[in-house]
Simulated scan of single mutants.
Amino acid sequence: MNRLGQVAVITGVSHSKGIGAAVCLEFAKAGYDVFFTCWDAEEKWLKIFKKEIQDYGVVCNYIEADFRQQDSYTRVLNGVEATLGVPVILINNAAHSVVDGYKNLDVNMLDEHYAVNMRALMMLSVEFAKRFEASPFTAGRIINITSGQNLGPMVDELAYGATKGAISAFTSSLSAELAPLGITVNAVNPGPTDTGWMTNEIKKELLPKFKMGRIGMPKDAARLIAFLVSEEAEWITGQILHSEGGFLRS
């Protein structure tokens, strides 16, 4: 399959060490045109990163998107179509996370998690499917990023855990609806991943729990996602894949 001209949308790409950035580069290497969203990112880095993607011979563009805004999903998909064309791949990577705990959780904190982690992801997905259905394409992919909320408690992350956990149920139900359109819908849980948030103390604590002997890296998630959008994965849908390098929670 000649992938040049096929458009992939990746949300939540705001710094070089994130999973979103790794996915963009993996897709560019495979020949997909890349459209990504960012928020509160350095303009200098955005320009450098855009060129890095374009150096693979593909087209790239991006848009700043505040997914707390109700119309954000429409702005993103309109921006994609206006510059690159109708997308065939949607990677819902953007997320909002604030440490809370039952003593600190309030309505505003919960609403912001809901807006980004659930509403934006869900509306992007259904609008993507509607536009795909009206296009000449016959194979599409939606991949949602989760965090293994069903595998154990996330202490002091009540809003994050609850809203990200809802993605698994949404993925399963949406996959059944979109299968007749040729769109697969899956979710990926990359496990604890070193995207810049881990201190040396956190790494020291987590490392013994990775039975493969190292901390998870963004490229690990990116490679799995690249497989899931390939033709080889056309029979995989409605799945939540836990790709954690043997990480032990107990």
Rank of each mutant, 00 (worst) to 15 (best):
P87W: 03
N117V: 01
N61V: 08
V107H: 13
Q6T: 09
L124I: 01
M109F: 08
F35N: 03
V9C: 04
M212L: 15
N61G: 10
L46R: 03
E205A: 14
G213I: 03
D100V: 05
Y114M: 11
G213K: 02
T74R: 14
V76H: 04
G101L: 07
K103E: 15
F170R: 07
G79H: 05
A129M: 02
N2P: 12
K103P: 12
Y73N: 11
M122S: 15
T184H: 02
E52A: 13
L206N: 08
L151R: 14
I10K: 04
E177W: 11
V34R: 01
S147G: 11
L121H: 12
L174A: 07
E127I: 04
S97V: 15
V13N: 02
A65W: 07
I89V: 14
S250N: 14
S14K: 05
L241E: 09
R75C: 11
G57E: 06
L248A: 13
A162M: 13
V185Y: 01
L158Y: 10
C60M: 04
M212G: 09
P180F: 01
A233P: 06
A139Q: 13
C38Q: 15
I89C: 05
V107P: 08
P180T: 01
M122D: 12
I167S: 08
F35V: 00
R214N: 02
F36V: 02
K29N: 07
N200G: 14
M212P: 11
A169P: 12
Q70C: 10
V188G: 00
V188K: 00
C60N: 07
K209T: 07
L4I: 10
F27R: 01
D111A: 13
A233H: 06
I236L: 11
M212Y: 13
D106A: 09
E52K: 15
F27H: 05
K103V: 15
E234A: 15
N200V: 06
A65L: 10
E26P: 04
I143V: 07
S243P: 09
E42S: 13
P190L: 02
L224R: 04
I91T: 06
A169G: 15
K50C: 12
M118P: 10
I225M: 03
I53C: 05
L124T: 00
K51N: 14
Y160D: 00
W45S: 02
E42L: 10
F210Y: 10
L206G: 07
E127T: 06
K204Q: 13
I91W: 03
R3D: 06
V155G: 11
T37S: 09
L4S: 12
D194N: 03
